[in-house]
Simulated scan of single mutants.
Amino acid sequence: MLITLRSMLYFVAMILSIGIFGLAIVTIGMLMPLSVRDRIAAAWGSTNLWLMRVICGLKYRIQGAENLPKHAAIVMCKHQSTWETISLKAIIRPQQSWILKQELMRLPIFGWALAAIPNIPIDRSAGRKAVKQIVERGTELLKRDRTIIVFPEGTRTAPGERRKYGIGGSLLAEKSGYPVVPIAHNAGVFWRRRGLKKYPGTIDMVVGEAFDPKGMKASEITRKVEAWIETEVDRLPSKP
């Protein structure tokens, strides 16, 4: 019961934070350089990590923090929970652009904030057109020294389950030649997909060494990323 109450309290706090920081991005932020909007978004992520720790007792630790990108790169991250969609804003450098579902752009305030930052919204039913958009827009943003965040699975996958990794991020890596940084974690153990409860404990995140994709086909990049991420996830605790 206490976990449920704390989780509900955090949910309310998260919604309030979206309103406050989202409106800041689309009002004051739009009058300022893009770097200011990036920092506001990063502050939103940091605030929510603090709220999770204080309200829910949910912490995190990072192994391989030295591998976090300091310049333009393609980050391919495991997708188990809502946690990583919040935390990566704070953990990775503020200059971020995400490959995300087009539907998110229609959400009030949150979607407006997403539109105020150069992200890559795609229609997942568009097939090759969406992949082409990822490659073209992603390469442009990488040249602007932005880090591209990709969830290769496309949607949240419960711990212990596997889903086919998409090729969009890998094709971007093949065509652009920018380094790839894989990230594994077990956030879904503590904050389940489509779940309200946030169980107290410590989420483990593992950041792999960047690798150069030059000379590799997209399929090879996908296999390399998937093998590394899934191997690391299998080593992490599977219970709160």
Rank of each mutant, 00 (worst) to 15 (best):
A113P: 10
L114F: 11
L114C: 13
L114V: 06
L114H: 04
A115T: 11
A115C: 11
A116Y: 08
A116Q: 08
I117N: 08
I117A: 08
I117Y: 09
P118D: 03
I120V: 14
I120C: 11
I120D: 10
I120L: 10
P121M: 01
D123N: 15
R124E: 12
S125G: 13
S125N: 13
S125W: 01
S125F: 08
G127W: 03
R128N: 14
R128E: 13
K129E: 13
V131F: 12
V131I: 15
K132E: 14
Q133D: 12
Q133R: 13
Q133I: 01
I134D: 00
I134H: 00
V135Y: 05
E136T: 15
R137C: 09
R137Y: 03
G138T: 11
T139R: 12
T139P: 02
T139H: 07
T139V: 02
E140S: 11
L142T: 10
K143D: 13
D145Q: 14
D145W: 05
T147C: 14
I149M: 15
F151S: 04
F151A: 10
F151R: 02
P152W: 00
G154V: 08
G154Y: 08
G154K: 10
T155Q: 12
R156D: 01
T157A: 03
T157N: 07
A158E: 15
A158M: 12
A158F: 02
P159M: 02
P159C: 01
P159K: 02
G160T: 06
K164L: 12
K164R: 15
Y165S: 04
Y165C: 00
Y165R: 03
G166Y: 13
G168I: 04
G168R: 06
G169L: 03
S170W: 03
L171V: 12
L172C: 00
E174V: 00
S176L: 11
S176V: 09
S176Q: 08
S176D: 09
Y178R: 11
P179E: 04
P179T: 05
P179D: 05
V180M: 05
V181K: 05
P182Y: 09
P182R: 07
P182D: 06
I183E: 03
A184V: 01
H185I: 09
H185R: 02
N186H: 00
V189C: 02
F190Y: 15
F190G: 03
W191D: 04
R192D: 13
R192M: 12
R192A: 15
R192F: 00
R193M: 13
R194F: 13
R194V: 06
G195L: 09
G195F: 05
L196F: 12
L196D: 07
P200A: 08
G201S: 11
G201R: 12
T202S: 04
T202Y: 07
D204Q: 14
M205C: 13
M205T: 15
M205L: 15
V206M: 06
V207D: 01
V207H: 07
V207M: 04
G208E: 05
G208K: 09
G208Y: 07
E209K: 15
E209G: 10
F211G: 08
F211P: 07
P213D: 08
P213R: 10
P213S: 10
G215H: 04
M216Y: 08
K217S: 13
A218I: 08
A218P: 05
